Computed example of a mutant assay.
Amino acid sequence: MRIQRTVSQINVFALLFMSLGLLAACGDADSPEQQVRAVIEQMELAAENRDVGDVMEHVSEDYRGADGMGPEEVARYLRGYFIANQSIHLLTRIEDLTFPSEGEARAQVLVGMVGRDAAATRQWDLAADLHTFRIALRREAGDWKVTFVQVMRK
């Protein structure tokens, strides 16, 4: 039961970052909103490519998840998730994106996740989930970094 919950947390975290990039909108590339959307898109691509290092490049050293995980635990969980899933696809909708102060961003994102695990024997052996995430980002040395993720509902 604990292992299943942990795997679910991995799915949620990994897929959040992969899917947020789909929502990048047109606009001023230098605006904070566009910069945050670009970071999320880069994280999405890295997750779809199952590249832990590229995902973690956008996670703050000060990251602390609602579940208490730090950056090292997140990287371990992502590795496990990427090993267990041969392919990952996301459908995402940003429900809210705000900037409560300069250099700080908050987003609430609805994510539909579909993955095919390594044990799947047929193309249609897929797992699907729908989650709402609350994330926080902070500008660190000119780059936006994820500092917090919380799964709101499943």
Results as ranks from 00 to 15, higher is better:
residue 129 D to I: 04
residue 124 W to Q: 09
residue 139 R to M: 12
residue 140 E to A: 06
residue 144 W to K: 06
residue 140 E to K: 05
residue 146 V to F: 11
residue 113 M to P: 05
residue 130 L to R: 08
residue 135 I to F: 03
residue 147 T to P: 04
residue 143 D to V: 10
residue 118 A to E: 10
residue 116 R to S: 08
residue 140 E to Q: 13
residue 113 M to S: 15
residue 134 R to E: 09
residue 132 T to A: 02
residue 120 A to N: 11
residue 123 Q to F: 09
residue 138 R to I: 00
residue 122 R to V: 11
residue 146 V to C: 13
residue 117 D to N: 15
residue 134 R to L: 08
residue 132 T to I: 07
residue 121 T to A: 13
residue 133 F to M: 10
residue 119 A to E: 12
residue 137 L to D: 02
residue 114 V to G: 11
residue 116 R to Q: 15
residue 135 I to N: 00
residue 131 H to S: 11
residue 140 E to Y: 03
residue 139 R to Q: 15
residue 121 T to F: 07
residue 137 L to R: 02
residue 121 T to Y: 05
residue 136 A to L: 04
residue 125 D to Y: 03
residue 120 A to C: 13
residue 123 Q to W: 05
residue 135 I to Y: 01
residue 129 D to N: 11
residue 125 D to M: 05
residue 117 D to V: 00
residue 133 F to I: 07
residue 134 R to N: 05
residue 136 A to V: 02
residue 134 R to M: 04
residue 113 M to V: 14
residue 127 A to V: 14
residue 141 A to E: 15
residue 116 R to M: 13
residue 132 T to K: 01
residue 138 R to S: 08
residue 116 R to E: 07
residue 127 A to F: 05
residue 131 H to I: 00
residue 135 I to A: 13
residue 115 G to E: 07
residue 139 R to P: 03
residue 137 L to K: 01
residue 138 R to M: 02
residue 142 G to D: 05
residue 128 A to E: 13
residue 146 V to P: 06
residue 138 R to F: 00
residue 128 A to V: 15
residue 139 R to N: 10
residue 143 D to F: 06
residue 138 R to A: 12
residue 123 Q to S: 09
residue 137 L to Q: 05
residue 136 A to C: 03
residue 136 A to T: 06
residue 131 H to N: 08
residue 141 A to P: 05
residue 142 G to A: 04
residue 131 H to L: 00
residue 125 D to A: 07
residue 123 Q to I: 09
residue 147 T to W: 01
residue 140 E to V: 14
residue 143 D to P: 01
residue 147 T to A: 02
residue 126 L to T: 15
residue 143 D to N: 13
residue 134 R to A: 07
residue 145 K to S: 02
residue 119 A to L: 12
residue 135 I to C: 08
residue 117 D to C: 05
residue 116 R to F: 08
residue 138 R to Q: 10
